[in-house]
Simulated assay, not measured.
Amino acid sequence: MLKFFRKIRQNSLLESNTSKYLKYALGEIILVVIGILIALQINNWNEEKKQQEKELAFLKEINLDFKSNKEQLDSIVSYNKVSFNAGVRLLETIQTFDLNNPIRNESNKHLADSIQFYNRLVWRNKSFNPKNGAVEALLNSSSFDLIKNDSLRRKLISWKDVLGDYLEEEAFSINFLFYEYAPWARENYDPDSTNDPENTKAFFSKRNRNFLNKRAGDLDNMLSTVKEEGVVDMIDDIIRLTEPEHND
């Protein structure tokens, strides 16, 4: 096409037809400009496609991470509910004994057996270790601008704070378990012994009852925080907003 315009231009010059030459020169310029604009548009389309592919890759990773987080947290919530209920039941059972002279006999044998069962449940621990690799990588780089959904962007930014509130409660609970209760229990109490008078005395002591109340309170706080801070709801929302069908 350019050769065609060039041929006409040469013929126009030879014929000394300036007006005709200017028209065809202008046409040639317009054709070049159009070609440049088309090339730029194609380049923009290709770049946009690359950005969309990067966004979808991030969304896929986040989706997988949060599905794993949901499965793990649901398991921990169920786990802690069992432990909390065991703590409440254990405290109720203890109160049926004479705390000044707790004795195992035929009439309370079933209660004494249940105490051992509940006591094992209440002191166990299971920590939440969420997968945050994809979110951290996104937030700490310029790639965060790839996420076009404003609702998802807000939730990803808020996730760290919401998660932090729960992990703070969990940390309080773990510190109590390992730095307050565990040292005392190792020194004063053997949960597998049923016939040692000193063991029985330690278990029914005021200090151990206080420990049990503190443990039940910590478990209740963790369960309440998950609900009140909307940890599960936020995980569900992030999963929904990163599903492939939501981003087609």
Score class of each variant (00 low, 15 high):
D161C: 02
L121E: 05
I157A: 11
S141C: 02
L163W: 11
D161I: 00
Y179M: 14
S143K: 12
I147R: 05
T93R: 14
A134E: 02
P102R: 09
L91Q: 13
N105R: 01
L163S: 13
Y179A: 04
A137R: 12
K155L: 15
S158A: 15
A171E: 13
N175Y: 10
Q116A: 13
D145R: 13
D165L: 12
S158G: 13
A137V: 00
P183D: 08
D150R: 05
F128T: 01
F128W: 12
L121Y: 04
W123M: 08
Y181L: 13
S151Q: 09
F84S: 01
K160P: 10
S158P: 12
L121G: 01
P102L: 09
P183S: 05
P130W: 05
G87N: 07
S151R: 10
L152S: 02
I103L: 10
L146K: 01
L152Y: 06
K81I: 00
F144G: 03
S142F: 05
V135A: 04
N175F: 08
D98W: 05
F176I: 02
E169Y: 01
Y181G: 05
F128P: 04
I157P: 11
V82N: 15
G133M: 13
R89K: 11
Q95I: 00
A86W: 03
N140P: 09
K160D: 15
L139I: 01
D98P: 10
R120C: 02
F176P: 07
R124T: 07
T96A: 08
L111C: 05
L139S: 02
F97M: 05
S143Y: 06
S143N: 15
P183T: 00
N85Y: 03
F144W: 11
Y181S: 12
A137P: 03
L121F: 07
N140G: 13
F84H: 08
L167I: 03
I103N: 09
N132A: 11
L91W: 07
S141K: 11
W184Y: 10
Q116Y: 15
T93P: 14
S151N: 10
E168D: 08
K160V: 07
L90M: 09
V82F: 10
D113C: 00
N100A: 10
D150K: 13
W159E: 12
S114Q: 13
I103W: 03
V135M: 10
T93W: 06
N108K: 04
F117L: 14
F128K: 08
V135K: 14
N175K: 11
P102M: 07
S151L: 09
R153A: 07
L90K: 06
V122Y: 00
S158N: 15
L156D: 02
V162P: 11
R89W: 00
K81M: 07
P102F: 08
F176M: 06
W123K: 12
Y79S: 02
E168S: 14
